[in-house]
């Protein structure tokens, strides 16, 4: 894809001798224009990322090289395995439901007349536009043990006893995932809505004439046409959800007893609050494999998609 993008204005420039002088200077100018970006990537992304690998091999006071000592130490701790398990549950469940609800919502918005679509899309996007930290604190207040507005509704309509939303491990896990789904679904909806618009209308007409119902049209026409964009969005969201910090930090702060802790929040607790920077760096590095695999497939998907276009 980059190749296609890059095939610039070579041919006409070569044709005209007056332009040749400019053309000769071109790579230099281009490099100077991209230099701030290159510096930013090297100094503020690549260097810290490599430095965190180096940090992970040091002991707590950062004076002595311990090799894989930090990782071996983590492998022996139950909390670490709990964090791994919870991160996987958190990311996979959230991404699954975000995809599912996103596809349905995009379909609903796509079904209604074009005139009203903008309005509905706008209303559904609010949860995504509000800064996550801010919406998390609102949810925290909605889950408040004594004044929970949800418990009031449940008691009023179903007579249910108050639910300890963030107080019990199982409910707390449910809540952090719920808030993540709430905040992330609109992104999926937007991406799928854009993909839906690019599906040729004739396919649906043909399907309708063949007597396909709503489900069949979704399953046999829409989903195959959107396969690529779905996979890109899912993988991208997998990275973002795995690396999530705000929601868990604000809602439960990892509690009760570290049951909702995920990689980012635990790394923060160990590294910044517990003042063990090498151990924190080791914890956050465990996000790297999932990141690398997803990135590889996203890149492949984007390349393939740009070839289709």
């Amino acid at each position: 894809m980059a190749e296609a993008v890059m095939s610039g204005v070579r041919a006409p420039a070569a044709r005209r001798s007056s332009l040749r002088a400019i053309a000769r200077r071109k790579p230099m100018i281009a490099f100077m224009m991209a230099l701030p970006l290159i510096l930013l990537i090297l100094l503020l992304v690549v260097y810290p990322a490599l430095y965190s690998i180096h940090l992970a091999t040091l002991n707590r006071s950062m004076k002595r090289f311990v090799g894989f000592g930090n990782f071996l130490f983590l492998f022996k701790r139950d909390t670490f395995w709990m964090v791994v398990k919870q991160s996987v549950i958190f990311a996979c469940t959230a991404v699954f439901f975000k995809t599912l609800i996103g596809i349905f919502l995009a379909n609903f918005v796509h079904t209604i007349p074009t005139k009203g679509q903008r309005k509905w899309r706008g209303m559904l996007m609010v949860s995504w536009v509000i800064p996550t930290a801010i919406s998390s604190i609102t949810w925290f207040w909605l889950f408040d043990p004594s004044y929970s507005a949800f418990n009031w509704l449940l008691a009023k309509f179903f007579g249910t006893a108050p639910i300890p939303w963030l107080g019990e491990p199982l409910w707390a896990r449910f809540c952090v995932i719920l808030v993540n789904i709430w905040a992330g679904t609109p992104f999926f909806m937007i991406m799928y809505l854009a993909a839906l618009k690019s599906v040729p209308e004739q396919l649906y007409e043909a399907a309708a004439i063949d007597g396909a119902n709503w489900w069949q049209r979704l399953w046999y026409v829409t989903l195959p046409m959107m396969r690529n964009i779905i996979s890109i969005t899912v993988l991208f969201s997998l990275i973002v959800t795995f690396a999530n910090f705000d929601i868990v930090r604000i809602l439960t702060n990892g509690g009760p007893v570290d049951q909702t802790q995920i990689f980012a929040t635990w790394a923060f607790q160990v590294g910044i609050q517990g003042n063990d920077i090498p151990l924190g760096a080791s914890v956050s590095l465990f996000m790297f494999p999932i990141l690398g695999v997803s990135a590889y497939f996203i890149l492949r998907g984007v390349r393939r998609r740009s070839q289709e276009i």
Binding site: A49, A267, G271, M287, L299
Partner: peptide, 21 residues
């Protein structure tokens, strides 16, 4: 160009500890 895209995928939760240091 590819590097730019990969950089975009690196989450902040991977970088805050090295930055701190």
């Amino acid at each position: 160009a590819t590097g730019v895209f990969l950089t975009y995928l690196i989450p902040e939760s991977l970088l805050f500890i090295p930055f701190f240091r």
